[in-house]
Amino acid sequence: MDGIWLDFERPLLELEKKIEELKATSHNGIGPELDRLTREAEKLKKKIFSNLNRWQRVQLARHPQRPYSMDIIERIAEDFIELHGDRYFRGDPAIIAGIGIIGPHRIAIVAQQKGRTTKERIYRNFGQPHPEGYRKALRIMKLGAKFGLPVLSLVDTPGAYPGVGAEERGQAEAIARNLKEMAVLPVPIVIVVLGEGGSGGALAIAVGDRIYMLEYAIYSVISPEGCASILWRDSSKAPEAAEALKLTAEDLLHFGVIDDIIKEPEGGAHRDWDATAARIKTKVIEAFDELKRLPIDELIQKRVEKFRQMTPKSD
């Protein structure tokens, strides 16, 4: 397997490489050895992935080979028509938006999009939206509401872009506006955090009726690096900060902030995009099935109530 891998994945990769090499020789009598190595690899995979600390999960959430929003959309939507522009300033490639079909549901989709190659990364601004990106997302969500299309929102961003133009055009206003409008949007909204849920920049498309996270996704008020540099004036202490912030899917489920975790294939979503997408699809269709049965008033009331309850429970 080519590409960049994380340190804690390496022992597993080396073993897998050995297996591949052995297979390539295809001598007679390698069967038992192959079986042994395969079993060993499975065991090692289990061992590594059942003991991940929070920082390792942060790294998985940012894995360069992790499926990004478009990879998921391509796999879960029978049709997807991308739509562009906020109608005021510019099209923002850090957010993709459009209409499509997923299973029995016609839906609107908004998502943050990272790039895989250097060129793409720059084009997508590393998945960091400008205000016009959030305004585009809102436009498409409202388009959805107008035609009774529920909204699927895929979250994967380090955060809203911290730049001069973003401030000049009202980054804060764009985010606040989305929070307010999404709270009462008269169609079901389902959120899936795919990778990084970076603070307000993530939340700006993450107010909805169901909030799911992939198993190794993270969602946090501040990046571990940012937190570490405020706390200890040293961003290299990000691993400690990740522990303090409690930002994993498990943490957030425990806090009652998210509704469920979507399990990733063994070894992480980057090892099997198809299987990851299939699980997301099942979960999302189920959620829309349920939510579409609710009268709109009740749907909105429950959504507002959901966020009212986002307060630490006394234990």
Partner: peptide, 26 residues
């Protein structure tokens, strides 16, 4: 801004207050 020391709960206060404001606006 959102108080870092309370993690995700602080972030969710942004959504909570904005949702109430949506109802106030209505």
């Amino acid at each position: 801004g959102a108080r870092m020391q309370e993690g995700i709960f602080s972030l969710m206060q942004m959504a909570k207050t904005s949702a109430e404001l949506a109802l106030l606006a209505q």
